[in-house]
Write a protein that binds this DNA or RNA. Structure first.
Lengths: 194, 194, 194, 194
DNA sequence: TATGAATGAGGTTTCATTCAT
DNA sequence: TATGAATGAAACCTCATTCAT
């Protein structure tokens, strides 16, 4: 048994990611999370208000990180929109690079997460806005076709990425994340191009 | 004897689609489904083995219809791969055209559905195979780039479509399905092109 | 399928005996009884008030028959109490001779049956009274020991017979009913003797 | 932490005995057992896997105690088989002496109990084997008649005892257990004698 | 802060019984 | 008399959450 010295809050969150990935939020049991975190079931409630709060804070971490990793990209003036899209996609995949389980939680519980207001949701919206902004820039610079609906595209791309991620997370050996993202970058820039 | 009047099996299925769309499968209550179907709770079990069976048969209907609507397209020789992709996308969207709730069920419960073998899953696989086949054809005819990974793309496209559908289903007035599919068709054919 | 011409009431009763023997009263399903009786489930209620009523009438038949088969024995003056006991036991076993299933119902549901007043219960009491009467006679004639408690013995004997019957009914090949009853007769008459 | 006070496991088992005796296993409600045990319904499942498990462990206790109380008797060499039978019967009745309700559970649910393998069943079989062994010994020493079928007798005796117990448990005032067992001992030894 | 025993609300499912035909 | 579709009450069990220590 690992000596309990460290950060129980984090231990619980990480255990929860594993359990949510395995069973989905609804079937996940607090008792199992507590066990994996080497903590008593009751202790979970010292750090989290309830089960849903754990999920919320997992997503807060995720979208905050994604937002912060990508906000610099949108603002850069030394690269063109095509390159921005490429970096943007890279950033996104990097987050999941060594966390297949987080990818599954993202894919399966994002709906649950989006349903109600939360701090994490703000970062999620900001993240989407950045993607949208990059595409808009590209349309202005005529790098991208002006006939595309930014609104439609941003969901399409995010959804596509989600689904690909899911399959990668379930069978990481079928194709590498690097291969996936190169494919997507090529596909996206061609698809967007004017 | 009391004779079947109307079609309770269908009533229940349609009620279930509404409830699953609203609450998700896990939170959905049989009592609520029965109420919407104007049927006693116990009657649900005359037509469906259990709650999961309802979901299975909803997905069976969906993928069977999608498969059957699209199988002719893949086999046609009078149109080129680009047109096939366009028809394929059209077919897909047509199914949801007047069933926003079905789109939500599809989006939210597809994971659940894919997890275990079922008759519907066979049609789902066949459907995916058709999409994959069309793209492969296009690569052969050099209409599509030979650098794309069919495997990655097929999930990307399906996932993207799923997510777009979800947002449309939640707020059908923001953009019409027709607008969405025209956007996607343009984006896809460009993205795939060689 | 047997042509339904005959006695549905009887068909149902016989089906019920089989099902009660197999599953016990509580787990027995009306649907299964109806199926074995080649009758619709609802039809059962044309002939029997409810599930319990079927059991009651099965036991009524049983105890009425046992009572009527044995009442002549108690009254005979040409044989002594020892012989009466022997005939009494013979009569009892004869009823089950070719109905192992009835024996199981008797053994398992007798409790249920005794709990509430019914016509069958009257015959059951009369039957016990006859056995008691024969033993009392034997005590008077000094064939049987005067130290025995008739009350205790009559339950002991009936209970013993019940349990032996049960094991015979479950595995009729282990020992024949004839062998059983000869053993018991010998045991009883010796046990009772003065 | 909230600490186990008293012995809830035992409280529940004793409450269950009362409820099973009153209503029989199938009609017994967990809610009622929990109420009598002064425990929340859910707490029952902290100590017992399910309803059946409660019954199993009641019978395990019973047959283990009976087995352990009687195993010394069979092995003794200082008393003859007739005395062994007497002690054996005494032991048996002693267990129920101040637990009329346990006697009812035994009588009503023994069938249920015997149907499936369990730890208690092992003790039950051992107990029966001991009774059988004592009788066999008696036959060898010619204290008992060699014409009796041990197999038949062991069930007959157990069954008889069961039924007598039942009537005693339902109306303990009609005759004392002591009177019953003296009667039976006399009856048995005479019945068995050569 | 930490525990884990205790709680009790809540939902799926079964099945005896009813009743329209 | 006969049917069998429809009913709906009832109960086991799970598990998130609480709380005494």
């Amino acid at each position: 048994m690992r000596v309990k010295e460290g950060n129980k809050e984090l231990d619980i969150k990480e255990a929860a990611i594993r359990v949510f990935a395995e069973s989905g939020f609804h079937k996940a049991k607090i008792a199992k999370i507590a066990e994996l975190a080497n903590v008593a079931a009751g202790s979970v409630y010292l750090y989290y208000k309830n089960k849903e709060d754990i999920l919320d804070r997992i997503f807060l971490d995720l979208w905050k990180e994604l937002y912060e990793n990508t906000k610099a990209i949108a603002e850069r003036s030394d690269i063109n929109p095509v390159e921005k899209i490429e970096y943007f996609v890279d950033s996104f995949f990097n987050v999941f690079n060594q966390k297949p389980e987080m990818a599954l939680v993202f894919v399966h519980e994002q709906n649950q997460f989006v349903k109600k207001p939360s701090e994490g949701l703000i970062y999620y919206d900001k993240f989407l806005a950045q993607g949208e902004f990059i595409i808009s820039q590209g349309i202005e610079t005529e790098d991208f076709s002006k006939n595309i609906s930014v609104k439609v595209l941003r969901y399409f791309i995010l959804g596509g990425v989600r689904f690909v991620l899911e399959h990668w997370a379930k069978a990481p050996d079928d194709y590498t994340l690097v291969a996936i993202r190169e494919n997507l970058k090529a596909f996206l820039t061609k698809g967007l191009s004017s």
